[in-house]
């Protein structure tokens, strides 16, 4: 009973903090200085049409590097914990229905192409590496549901993930070697605004990030499918 009162006191304290923020809140009418600089100088300095992409990949490139590292550590933890321990029996699952198998053969390549389209055009339209990687992982989930006892290409997924991670850091070090700074995108030529091959090295970086995130999430789903066989 005291525990409940204690919990209610904590939540009420939190609510008082949030309410006192909301009471003195007035809407802004102009952007602050940093946003004004980013929005005004993206077209000349970076050459990307999507301002959020320019911020995530070049102006705030270190944060993206840290996020890719966190995803890598999480995928490694899941792979280590869910390692197979030799107590599996083949459970002979019921095969998937005819509609699902036929639809999967038709839709899986289309979903992969759509995911690749999203991260290649990341600097022109809304999208980018993380969205494209998630769509690729969802396509892989469709394949897993239609073949419940199939063997996923584990070696291919691991190879794609390693090469993409290495390529991302190598693209950053290239900028450092040419005297511009780590993860600078201006060493490939900016091109004209709105074309596919513009904005320097941003399409290449987003392709590496998209493939890496897609391979990692597919690996996690594959491990979660393997534990259904235990006991």
């Amino acid at each position: 009973m005291f525990k409940k009162l204690f919990v209610i006191a904590i939540v009420a304290g939190f609510a008082v903090l949030l309410w006192s923020y909301l009471r003195h809140y007035t809407e802004r009418t102009t952007l602050n200085d940093l946003s004004t600089y980013y929005v005004d100088n993206t077209a000349q300095e970076i050459g990307a049409a999507n301002v959020v992409t320019a911020i995530v990949v070049t102006y705030r490139g270190f944060d993206t590097l840290g996020e890719v590292t966190i995803l890598f550590v999480a995928a490694s933890l899941i792979a280590m914990f869910l390692k197979s321990m030799g107590t599996e029996k083949s459970r002979n699952p019921r095969p998937a229905s005819l509609i699902l198998v036929t639809a999967q053969k038709l839709l899986f390549p289309l979903i992969l192409i759509f995911g690749v389209y999203i991260f290649i055009n990341g600097h022109l339209t809304p999208g980018g590496g993380f969205q494209g990687g998630s769509v690729i992982a969802t396509g892989f989930l469709l394949w897993l549901m239609a073949n419940p006892d199939g063997h996923a290409p584990k070696g291919l997924l691991n190879t794609i993930e390693s090469i993409s991670g290495f390529g991302y850091v190598a693209a950053g070090l290239f900028g450092l070697a040419l005297g511009l700074g780590f993860l600078d995108n201006r060493f490939l030529g900016l091109g004209t605004l709105g074309h596919l091959f513009s904005a320097g090295v941003i399409p290449i970086i987003y392709s590496f990030i998209g493939l890496k995130v897609g391979a990692e999430l597919s690996n996690v789903l594959h491990h979660l499918n393997e534990i259904q066989n235990e006991e």
Binding site: G127, Q131, S134, T138, L217, L224, I227, Q228, E230
Partner: peptide, 24 residues
Amino acid sequence: DVAMTEAAIGSGLTTIIFFYVLNK
């Protein structure tokens, strides 16, 4: 951008990972 990310990751993959663990 944020809408696309939340729809693909938050509403698709998180629910599926929950159901995979809930099965056991």
